[in-house]
Nucleic acid binder design. Sequence first.
DNA 1: CGCCCTTTTGATTATGGTCAAACGTTGTGG
DNA 2: CCACAACGTTTGACCATAATCAAAAGGGCG
Lengths: 243, 243
Amino acid sequence: MSDIVIRKLGPGLSPTSQHHLKQIISHRRHLRPGEDLQRQGDASGTVHFVLEGILCRYKHCGEKRAVLAYLLPGDFCGPHPDFNGILDHGICSLTHATVAEAPHHLWQECLHHASDLTKALSVLFLAEIRIQRQWLANMCQPADKRMAHLLCELRARLEQVGLADDHSFSLPLTQQELGEALGISTVHANRTLQHLKDQELVRIVDRRVVIADLAQLQAFAEFDVGYLAIWPAMITEPRAVAV
Amino acid sequence: MSDIVIRKLGPGLSPTSQHHLKQIISHRRHLRPGEDLQRQGDASGTVHFVLEGILCRYKHCGEKRAVLAYLLPGDFCGPHPDFNGILDHGICSLTHATVAEAPHHLWQECLHHASDLTKALSVLFLAEIRIQRQWLANMCQPADKRMAHLLCELRARLEQVGLADDHSFSLPLTQQELGEALGISTVHANRTLQHLKDQELVRIVDRRVVIADLAQLQAFAEFDVGYLAIWPAMITEPRAVAV
DNA sequence: CGCCCTTTTGATTATGGTCAAACGTTGTGG
DNA sequence: CCACAACGTTTGACCATAATCAAAAGGGCG
């Protein structure tokens, strides 16, 4: 199951490093919906990778909770090796989830032996900040476009790890949770989704997102997949990683 | 003048590395207001540090321009050493500005010789993503609080490099540019500033932000300086770096 | 002075928030 | 099996924040 991490960390890793990494992250931890993996204000903690389920980075913002990022299977939860401060945000599981946990000393040792791993992590990290910037840029769009954009992004990221195709994917999130990520109220998230449904762009049935015409949805959302490319090869050859 | 970069990169650098770095970034480049340092879509470019003036990272978002980050004196413009793709955003100068430019081959060599520099850069980069996350979290606040928060942030970041005190700082940005960073219209940026002025929290006179009572402004903005700490020591001892 | 850019103001519109209630589903316990 | 609680979804009415449009008023500069 840790293959999904290898898949995401990509073609850059030597077989030796891959082996090392798999050993290190063999320890599993299960999380229930709503359970925190790390809390805002904690001193920097253990390294994690998502194996199953969806988690989110979040901050408290007045009364509300602001969801800053979704963490999907294969994603690195941090903290980054160079970080040695206080965590500025929490990580919370939105579904039942399984994460791989790397004990601190083993992780340090692994980074030491597998020098290409440090670079691969940096690349993942740079990919994450590109998503973060895109989310901020999207804030100047109306809610329906933002919602469509978010669904396009989730689809593309899940596809990278083989969990989505062009027509549908599983999305066990509530409308409230989607709203928190878009910075809109639950009620408005609902109306927004209905608006998309009325336009026959997407439907959400039975915890699955169903897309009639992906190109049309992406056009509506002004979605350009470029910012999600993790490895340079993916820009021209998106499926290269999936092989 | 490149001292400001050393100051920001912080106490982590050995004297040798500092010397190396100063040599490498001795090449200066001047930018006029509105001039691009890098364009969205370019292949990854040259490394830059801001020495004077204010630049911004931006994306086009429909008709508008979304400002994603301000780059202040001492800030690293990227690209990050591990990044080798297409730039997902542009960098534009908002004022007259001076940047230090490190030719690619010298930069690579410098990173090789000064291994602590790579780490220092990562730390700066992590600081930048914390700001990015905070900006996103702020999007669920009303515009007046966001504006106040932005001013608090700019003040604190400028103070880190000795360009602000508790009472005022120079801010040669237009209300339009502030609005683009907050995701609000120019008109609303103006009304928001007036609202803050009416509450006697801040005034902007003659391109300077004047703060009557910093604590009061920060309280209104729900501003917690923690996310701006670059080095662990700064969390408890913010002035340690400034010495 | 006249031009351009920025700031300011007013009037109008629209996007999205809040409150409240109803409806559907699921899971639990009697 | 049903009753009930808990949660998520849906709907309506009303309100608030902010966008848009238009125009006037300053301000710096050739």
